[in-house]
Design a protein around this nucleic acid. Structure first.
Length: 769
DNA sequence: TGACTGTGGGTTTTT
DNA sequence: CCCACAGTCA
């Protein structure tokens, strides 16, 4: 039982507790994955059949990692453990059961882009304005509905939501939602939320007592990153675990402090409800951090103590002090990127760090550009994760749309995409007519194409017929021929290959390479899948084109393998969750950016941003560098931002004050907002929240705030005048600009290094002196 | 039908 | 700044 020796007492206690519900609250770097994998290994050692074990994760990567690690402990029986993301595991079950709820087993999965495109088409058909009904915003709302089990009829009954829509002057959202659901169903398509929602529906309706089958199948259920589950996911989980006679062998791992997906419906309530739903629950807290050195852990603790609503825990480390946190104050985003790049180079030399131990993190993907530029300049290998992924590129989506049609002709989104691409004489007008007939006769566009009532020119009819013949041929062969062979032929016969070949520009060549890469991927996919199909589940051939399409839709580019090259990682903080590096750069710590301007008004939003920052800094094992820029390009214009409020929440003693870095601090001490306070004792939901440690620096700083000042009229505030500001103290107006009702003054303050600040006079209290 | 141009809008975060 | 889309022209 050697693997048990590798666990600390608490970890071990959690692992060997193999009966009944278990909750593991796991701080960053506390060996969460280790506990999860060893627990599964432990089950296997105790002769639990691998196929009765289910492990649900949020990313393919962590699922894969978990499987690999279990395999290391127990060997090949790990192969038969079901480990995957919620979406992929559920998709697999649905693939098998779809017909019971009125979907073809070959259903298509719509990714976010597909979904937006469908919604947009619906909005246009309804003659609504796409600037009012922003397709992407409508999609978010629909998604939120689905994750909370609000169907269109329930939506209509929901006075709150209807009122919200009326107030936003978008009364037709529910109609769009309704049409969208109908259209997806007609298309034999499920979006990401459907993969959860339709499974829930299946279990609810429970045809042939199907729920029982899966309850017996999954006797041991594990959930990683439980804090990121939404209401719907929890509802499904409950259906699988909580029933008469259940052993309730459910093992969940999470950390409320790392919940960063509230924006897509994740709710911390799930952890809290869990305690209520399972009275026999055993809770284990992993509080020792094995990842990071002292200053990093302490800084993280300080930051998170400002949040309300925390489960009580104290993360600690016995790792030595090592480096303090470096803080880079930069004038521009360009300087920030340059200094980060230079520091990376220096660290590489001084500490012999390989690129793979270095990550640059940012709040928004758009920030990657500058870092790319500067890393390229000094010849450092990097890889950007996130943003436009391979499978989102137009040429790839075009080819994939053809493949989708071959598997599921009802897929309207795919049909629209390629029916006239490459062009084959089918005009937009023709497509609109087809769509109209499909709507009127309640059939698919695929069928409407050949409808006798379709009133188009003979030439168009001929083109349509030709297109249909071509696709029908592929459909017939999709079942028998190898996915690779068929895809290769589709690429040529569709005319895509020829079209791309004709473009000899560098981008054009790249596009051709991309579609060829899809073919390679299909070939590779077929090979690996054949080797590891689960015969127990009687699934349709896992190496089929359909299986491939499902896999790529659920793929994130973080899942793509690295081919042995040593690169620096550039990614958003969100995608960095669960990862660790020796040296981490957390960049763009500015108000409006991190925290994002979207979340400034809402305390809940701010708390989530703070958790995000917490996640960011806890990725670092030894070297943590935080940077901010005073000026940053945004929409092509320079904008000045203040340093992030989160910086004030870290005690100065954790910062490296060498060289020019120390000066950064003076710039934001006593920033122009209310001084932050750690969450107070007992501000809790269930009464057992953390009692955050007290802070000193902020309280000291707040003493600087002087007696209230009397605001002078805006007219009196002109260039040259000396003024007193509530927070910044004495200063002189350098310049005043902007329209009468919204004047903005540039003021140089005596305090604060004679720094210049732009102040909106409407809001600021300034007294002329 | 395709290429070009101007405009307008957009940046949170992802399965 | 960068992209997507609508509108215009050959």
């Amino acid at each position: 039982m050697s693997y048990l020796d590798e666990l600390n007492p608490i970890q071990r206690a959690a692992v060997i507790n193999i009966e009944g519900p278990v909750l593991v609250i796991a701080g960053p770097g506390s060996g969460k994955t280790r506990v999860l994998t060893y627990r599964i290994a432990h089950l296997l050692e105790h002769h639990v059949p691998p196929r009765e074990i289910l492990a649900l994760t949020f990313t393919n990567k962590s699922a894969r990692e978990m499987k690999e690690r279990i395999e290391k402990v127990v060997g090949e029986s790990a192969q038969h453990v079901w480990a995957g993301t919620f979406h992929s595991v559920f998709a697999r079950i649905l693939r098998y059961e779809a017909e019971k709820i009125g979907y073809p087993s070959s259903f298509t999965i719509y990714d976010t882009d597909d979904t937006i495109s469908v919604i947009k088409a619906i909005i246009k058909e309804m003659n609504l304005d796409t600037t009012v009904y922003n397709p992407s915003a409508v999609r978010s709302r629909i998604s939120l509905c689905k994750s909370n089990l609000i169907t269109p009829p329930l939506y209509r009954q929901n006075a709150d939501m209807m009122q919200q829509d009326r107030a936003a002057r978008k009364p037709y959202v529910v109609d769009i939602y309704e049409k969208y659901v109908a259209r997806c169903h007609r298309s034999g398509a499920m979006d990401f939320d459907d993969l959860l929602y339709q499974l829930y529906r299946l279990f609810q309706q429970n045809p042939d007592n199907i729920l029982d089958k899966y309850r017996r199948r999954f006797r041991y259920i594990h959930v990683d990153e439980f804090q990121d589950t939404n209401f719907l996911q929890y509802a499904i989980l409950r259906l699988l675990v909580k029933y008469e006679g259940s052993l309730e062998n459910v093992f969940i791992v999470g950390d409320d402090a790392q919940s960063i997906y509230a924006f897509r419906g994740a709710t911390i309530d799930n952890i809290l409800d869990f305690e209520k739903d399972y009275p026999t629950l055993k809770t284990f807290k992993l509080e020792q951090n094995y990842r990071s050195t002292h200053h990093i852990v302490e800084a993280a603790n300080e930051v998170i103590s400002y949040n309300r609503r925390q489960l009580p825990k104290t993360i600690w480390t016995d790792r030595e002090e090592r480096q303090k946190i470096k803080l880079l104050k930069c004038v521009t985003d360009d300087e920030e990127a340059k200094r980060v790049a230079d520091l990376i180079l220096e660290q590489k030399h001084r500490y012999h760090l390989p690129n793979s131990e270095i990550a640059v993190l940012y709040r928004t993907n758009a920030q990657s550009r500058k870092f790319e530029e500067h890393l390229r300049k000094i010849n450092l290998q990097y890889r950007v994760f996130g943003g436009m992924s391979f499978y989102q590129r137009k040429e790839v989506k075009d080819l994939v749309a053809y493949l989708r049609l071959a598997v599921n002709a009802r897929d309207e989104e795919a049909l629209r995409r390629v029916i006239n691409f490459p062009t084959r004489g089918i005009s937009d007008a023709t497509i609109d007519k087809i769509s109209a007939i499909a709507g009127a006769t309640n059939t698919t566009m695929w069928d409407a194409m050949m409808h006798p009532a379709l009133d188009v020119t003979d030439r168009a009819k001929k083109s349509l017929f030709g297109f249909r013949m071509m696709v029908e041929d592929w459909q017939k062969r999709a079942a028998s021929e190898s996915a690779f062979k068929l895809a290769a032929e589709i690429l040529r016969k569709s005319g895509l290959h020829e079209l791309l070949k004709g473009d000899t520009s560098p981008e054009g060549i790249g596009r051709l390479e991309n579609v060829n890469a899809v073919l390679d991927a299909i070939s590779e996919f077929a090979d690996t899948q054949n080797a590891n199909t689960d015969p127990a589940l009687n699934l349709v051939s896992e190496s089929s084109l359909a299986a491939y399409l499902q896999t790529i839709t659920l793929l994130t580019d973080a899942d793509e393998k690295a081919e042995g090259t040593d690169y620096i990682t550039l990614m958003s903080v969100h995608s960095a969750k669960g990862l660790e590096y020796k040296s981490v750069f957390v960049t763009g710590l500015e108000e409006q950016l991190f925290p994002s301007f979207m979340s400034l008004e809402d305390p809940k939003g701010l708390d989530e941003e703070r958790r995000l920052f917490y996640v960011a800094i806890t990725r670092a094992k030894e070297f943590l560098t935080i940077s901010f820029a005073q000026n940053r390009y945004r929409f092509g214009q320079i904008r000045a931002n203040e340093p992030s409020r989160f910086l004030e929440e870290i005690d100065l003693k954790h910062f490296d004050m060498v060289g020019g870095i120390g000066a950064a601090r003076t710039n934001y001490q006593g920033g122009n907002r209310e001084q932050p306070q750690p969450a107070s004792k007992g501000a809790s939901l269930s009464g057992n929240f953390a009692n955050p440690r007290l802070r000193t620096m902020q309280q000291a700083a707040s003493a600087r705030v002087s007696a209230p000042i009397e605001a002078s009229p805006v007219e009196a505030l002109i260039a040259g005048v000396k003024v007193l500001h509530q927070k910044f103290g004495e200063g002189q107006i350098v310049n005043v600009e902007g329209p009468k009702d919204n004047r903005v003054a540039t003021i140089r303050f005596k305090d604060d290094d004679m720094s210049e600040r732009r102040i909106v006079l409407k809001f600021a209290k300034l007294q002329v002196i």
